[in-house]
Structures are given as C-alpha cells and as structure tokens.
Amino acid sequence: MISRRAVLRGAAGLAVGAALPTGLVGCSRGGGERVVRLAAGEAGGFYHAFALLLARAAAGSGLRIEVTATAGSLDNLTLLARGDADCALVLADSLVEDPDRPPAVGRVYENYLQLAVAVDSPYRGVADLRGARVNLGAAGSGATHIGEKLLTAAGVDLTEVTVTHLPLRDAAAEVSGGRLDALLWAGGLPTAALNPLRLLDLDPLTAVMRERFGYLYDPVLIPAGTYPNTAAVHTIGVANLLVATPTLPDATVGALTEVLLTHADSLVPSEAAGTQFLDARSLIGTGSVPLHPGAAAVYRRHHG
C-alpha cells in the first residue's frame, strides 16, 4: 500500500500558483476536464496539504483542481469575492461574519488553535502575554481573526502586546530564536513547524470564547505525544468549511462533493491527528452557512 506521506509528496506536483481565467471554470479543457481554482493556505500547513490530496483524488473524476497557496481564511474569502478563486478552505468563524458568505460544499475537518512559546519560556497562559511579542498568524489568515478574540477573552488588550503577522515558518524561527515570545497557529495536528515549541493550555478560555463569540469554538484535546515528549494540552477547535462561489455550476460542485464522499480515506494528510468530517452526516453540518445546491443534491442522492 502507498503511504499517506508518499501520496502527499506525489500530490505536491499539482500545486499551481497562477489563477486560471474565469471563463475556463466549470468548462471542458483538454480531455474534457472541468477546472476548479482552490484557494488553500500556507505551504506546510493542513489547508495546503488537504487541498493537494483533494486535487489528486479528483484527477480521475473529470475535475482538475488548481491549488493556490494563500495566507489563509481571510485571504481566501478575498480571492473568492474578486473572482480569483472558485472554491476555498475557510475557518467557520471567519465565514459566518462575512455578509457575502459563499455557500458550503461541506464541513471537512477541525482546526486546532495552537499558541506556541519556546520550551523554556516563562509564559503559562494567555493572560501572561501582556507586554509580549506575539505573532497572530500571517496577514489574511483566520488565526489573526481568532487571535484578537482569544486575547480579549483572556482580558488582554491589543495595546498591551506587540503583534506581528509573519508566515508560520518565519514566526516559528523567530520564537525559537527569542525574537518573538509566542505565535498562534490554527491548523491540523501535528504541524511540523511547531516542533520543538511548547503549547499553552487554552482550556480556561473555551467557555469564555463560546459565551462571548458564539458556539463555533469547541473544547478539544491535543493528545500526549502529538509533538515529541509533550503532555496532553487542552485547546480550542474551530471547524473548517470547503466553500464555493454561488456561480460555480451545480454539476461541478456535485462532482467535487462526490470526491469528498468517495475518497475520504485518501484525503487525510499524513500529519493529521485531529477530527475529520469526511462522511455525509458530518459534511452537511455547516451550521448557519447554507450548502451549495450542487452539494445538497449529492448528499440527498446518497442519504435521502
């Protein structure tokens, strides 16, 4: 059997940085494939790894998925709004606050908030970060949005911290080198760039986040040993949705939905240890975000 890691390496060749002309979307090209431009996330993160596997799985379905690396959720919503992407991976809390939110193809997996500090750091909780230098995700990422809420929930005003917005790998290097005190990442488990940093326990803030900002914030556990020589850590999970522009043809979205339903086992990146939602009952759990008609039709056909 081919390992998930080998599949991920093979999928890497499918990434395409340049967006295709809108006129090609959903239309035949080459051997009759329909092209879908998918806004993913940072290379090295779960969004991007998942998107590459989805592109590989779709290759025999009549779809060609062109994966674009981005900063994350907020960047992806911008690309959708201006017509430079057809589908995107987006944190649920970033999506529900968008007045022009696109319809969902499905709820695909759980993102884990990971607030990381150096192993020998004196910081033990979010409230300790007053006066600290904190990276709240790359500009345009969903971590930026959540990070501000997290600090507020802990009683830390944004004026009390020095905030930066570096990409994940750069931020991890700055924390390791002592030039930053902490970084926030929203992604899968484990994320290689966070090793050998230490994660702060966010358990005291889960209820506060839910009370102040809504039901989208789940109490989740990062198991012991997820990162080398680490104990279990309680943190906060946020569901991730795959969304599409309303104008993407129903048949194209339907074909994409079929890939999610029929290739679930091959769509879990090798680094994933968290909760996946790749079955019909969970995929449709998109909350207040309506399903795209093309996706809804496929779910009804499979499960009534």
Rank of each mutant, 00 (worst) to 15 (best):
residue 202 L to M: 03
residue 141 S to H: 03
residue 10 G to H: 07
residue 213 F to H: 05
residue 288 S to G: 15
residue 28 S to N: 09
residue 14 L to A: 12
residue 8 L to E: 15
residue 167 P to H: 06
residue 94 S to N: 13
residue 248 L to H: 07
residue 16 V to K: 10
residue 81 A to S: 15
residue 102 P to E: 13
residue 64 R to N: 07
residue 47 Y to T: 10
residue 113 L to H: 00
residue 115 L to E: 02
residue 236 I to M: 04
residue 274 G to V: 05
residue 75 D to G: 09
residue 268 V to T: 12
residue 6 A to N: 05
residue 37 R to D: 11
residue 142 G to S: 00
residue 204 P to C: 00
residue 198 R to Y: 09
residue 234 H to C: 10
residue 94 S to V: 09
residue 110 E to G: 08
residue 272 A to G: 12
residue 50 F to L: 15
residue 107 R to G: 00
residue 23 G to H: 08
residue 259 V to N: 04
residue 243 V to T: 08
residue 153 A to D: 08
residue 109 Y to Q: 03
residue 241 L to I: 10
residue 43 A to F: 03
residue 71 A to C: 04
residue 181 D to I: 02
residue 236 I to P: 05
residue 263 H to R: 15
residue 51 A to R: 04
residue 249 P to F: 02
residue 188 G to Y: 02
residue 123 Y to E: 10
residue 187 G to K: 03
residue 265 D to G: 10
residue 244 A to G: 02
residue 144 T to L: 06
residue 22 T to G: 10
residue 110 E to I: 04
residue 284 I to F: 09
residue 262 T to N: 14
residue 21 P to R: 07
residue 11 A to R: 04
residue 122 P to T: 08
residue 109 Y to F: 13
residue 52 L to F: 03
residue 256 L to V: 05
residue 243 V to H: 06
residue 71 A to I: 07
residue 294 G to Y: 08
residue 192 A to E: 15
residue 151 L to R: 00
residue 142 G to K: 04
residue 170 D to C: 09
residue 298 V to G: 11
residue 133 R to K: 09
residue 102 P to T: 02
residue 143 A to W: 04
residue 294 G to N: 04
residue 136 L to P: 07
residue 33 E to N: 11
residue 4 R to Q: 15
residue 220 V to E: 06
residue 84 D to S: 12
residue 70 T to K: 06
residue 68 T to W: 03
residue 271 E to M: 14
residue 279 D to T: 13
residue 204 P to H: 04
residue 44 G to S: 10
residue 253 V to Y: 05
residue 248 L to S: 07
residue 200 L to M: 06
residue 178 G to K: 06
residue 40 A to E: 00
residue 193 A to K: 01
residue 28 S to V: 08
residue 36 V to N: 10
residue 157 D to A: 12
residue 248 L to Q: 11
residue 243 V to N: 02
residue 100 D to F: 10
residue 84 D to E: 14
residue 241 L to Y: 05
residue 12 A to Y: 11
